[in-house]
Design a protein around this nucleic acid. Structure first.
Lengths: 386, 386
DNA sequence: TTGATTAGTTCTAGAGCGAAAATATCTTGC
DNA sequence: GCAAGATATTTTCGCTCTAGAACTAATCAA
């Protein structure tokens, strides 16, 4: 563990759960919190007092809205001072570093991107420290840094293996801490994104929740009991062996008819190019499919059916309360949502609970935001590693 | 809740977890329990004392085995007196009632079966009470009854819907309690089987565990965080919409190429009969496949590949530590295990954690045992409904 | 203004825990 | 046989967290 001590004094388990509840579920009165956490009113007074004294929580005037008129003493909502601290999240790709500054509640307040021209660990750390420096000037409340990297990350500090950076056991957290003096948390990018959605996004408050990302590759995140489940093949080409249609297309990466071959942006572009000779962008292909261009429509239709099968399989086995489809490749849903849903319905039991599927087109800044959330979890609240 | 008060005095949460730990994981010393439950040695003295006084636990002489010679004061294993109480489990099918008597540790000590000639609720309850009467004579320590029924069960007491019995909202627990004077727990048969395997069988001590049963139908049980996840389509034809091979066979029940069409015993027999005209038993078909009889080999081969696909999908999404294949239809594995495993391997990432698949041919008495385990959970330990 | 209603605080007793010291019972080495 | 060391369990103590009751606070309704 390279990351340094928490920025706030260590919280007791009770205090931590109260802090998380307020952070994640917005302003809440003590009574609300007591009900949610199944605690007595007296305990809430006790637990909130130190949190208010430390400045993490404040009493806020009743949320402006059309205050529903009720009898009795009005409740006194508590909230985190979202702007009191800011966090920096980085997403490192092969040729770019994307950075965001977020509040305590993970709202993005600034963005900063830089090309990445070298993969030398020290120089990458230099670049990240430089970007941090620029932002410190504008955001003096910067409290911690989260870094998301595609690849295997150990102890939230060391990049054990990253194919595109050609790194092995690079202590990235340490390198950046040395240069910035700020505590740093490093995590696999998909894992960070999933954590962010679990805490602040689509998976808020859910017990069983699945994140499926489609973009350059396929990413999968499983949240059970409110906690992400780590797995061995994480970010090492998940979905490559994942046959959705045995008669599907053969592409340079992924087995025939696999999720990678059918759904990822490179594979879709490859299929269209192989058939038509034209090197079209993903957006052009989607537009073509929408306009009825036969080849694009065929490829996109096949992808939509595959996605329906995939979501159905997840729904049938994991029984999640919600599935989030994210990434750059879910633009598919705008064009072919009906086809996805038809396929999904055909592959599920009619009596099965209706499935909540949320689609969210996300870009690299959303991935960077995920990394910032990791920093919030670890540095502010002292949430331990899974 | 119709089931009556616990047979032992109510246990505190701490006591309950100790009792379950010993019940499930055999004789354990106080130190072992402390380590497993992450408690101090002092707490163990405190928690075990009332359990020993109440007679639920006893100190046992060190397990006869080749006592490993170690320094220090020898540990004093604690165990439940498995034989101190017995439980009755029933599995009700369309034309038979299967009964077993088990110890506190769910070891079967007696069996009793009776044909079921009527589906009238009162007469079924009469039959169950009669069987109970016969067994009470031989087992005076009978403490509670568990009943497993295919169908939807509410509140562990009422059969909300059972297609084969043509029941709707039958308060079965109450009917049998009236006639026997013993506390009764009713549960869906698959759910009960899954609970039994989670506590005393293949899923012992696991966090993520899946049970797949193959027989007249397909059953699925998901255990997360050591608890079974209930789901809406439970026992209403799970697997019927579950397409494993789009080019697979069409059978009277189940969509084309579904788990039901490919894997269940009736569908396999149907396929062989449709192709050859011969009405062979499942065992004859398996023997034929093993002997190289082409038609049987083709059907069984297709089933084996489908099973491999199914297990792979579960493994890829649920990330379980173990999958149990059970039911009368897993004889398949004796003949075609290699084919199942080849298919499984082809559908998983090479870096994925190796999957623990256990096969257990089970009969109706195993289902009845599951119901008895429900009675143990609810009546002895006061384990609440999910 | 009074009473009803809901929110939050204070106080207290008790449950449950870990830490440390004490005790028990063994093996090992002499 | 005996002391030293190892391990298991019990005892004791103080601490933390909790619920519950009694109380105070702030609002609405009549």
């Amino acid at each position: 563990m390279t990351t340094r001590a928490a920025s706030w004094q260590p919280l007791s388990p009770g205090e931590r759960s109260v802090a998380i509840e307020v952070l994640v579920h917005g302003p809440l009165s003590r009574t609300d919190i007591a009900r949610r956490l199944d605690l007595s009113a007296g305990s809430l007074t006790r637990l909130t007092k130190p949190l208010i004294e430390s400045g993490l929580l404040v009493e806020v005037p009743d949320g402006g809205g059309p205050a529903e008129v009720r009898q009795g003493r009005p409740s006194q909502p508590l909230d985190v001072v979202a702007e009191s601290r800011t966090f920096l999240g980085f997403k490192v790709t092969e040729d770019m570093v994307y950075g965001v500054v977020t509040t305590l509640r993970s709202e993005i307040v600034a963005r900063l991107d830089r090309p990445l021209t070298t993969h030398d660990p020290a120089e990458v750390a230099d670049l990240l420290a430089g970007m941090t420096g620029e932002l410190t000037a504008r955001f003096p409340t910067l409290t911690g840094i989260g870094i998301g990297v595609g690849g295997l990350v150990r102890d939230r500090a060391v990049v054990g293996e990253s194919a595109f950076l050609h790194w092995n056991d690079v202590p990235l957290a340490e390198l950046v801490e040395e240069r910035t003096g700020l505590p740093v948390v490093v995590e696999n990018d998909v894992a960070a994104f999933v954590e962010a959605e679990t805490w602040f996004g689509a998976g808020r408050g859910l017990d069983r929740f699945v994140v499926l990302t489609i973009g350059a590759g396929v990413g999968y995140g499983l949240v059970l009991g409110g906690r992400r489940v780590p797995y061995a093949e994480e970010d090492r080409g998940f979905g490559r062996h994942w046959i959705l249609n045995p008669n599907g297309p053969l592409t340079p990466t992924g087995e025939r008819g696999s999720a990678v071959s059918l759904l990822t942006i490179p594979s879709i572009r490859y299929q269209v190019q192989a058939a038509t000779g034209q090197d079209l962008s993903y957006e052009e292909i989607l537009a073509g499919a929408a306009a009825g261009e036969p080849m694009s429509a065929r490829v996109i239709g096949e992808a939509a059916r595959a996605l329906g099968v995939l979501v159905a399989q997840i729904a049938n086995f994991v029984l999640p309360q919600k599935i989030l489809l994210a990434g750059e490749g879910v633009g598919l849903m705008d064009v072919a949502e009906a086809m996805v849903e038809d396929t999904l319905r055909a592959h599920r039991h009619p009596l099965a609970a209706p499935l909540d599927v949320e689609t969210k087109v996300s870009d690299f800044h959303d991935w960077a935001r995920g990394a910032a959330v990791l920093a919030i979890q670890v540095l502010v609240l002292g949430v331990a590693e899974v």
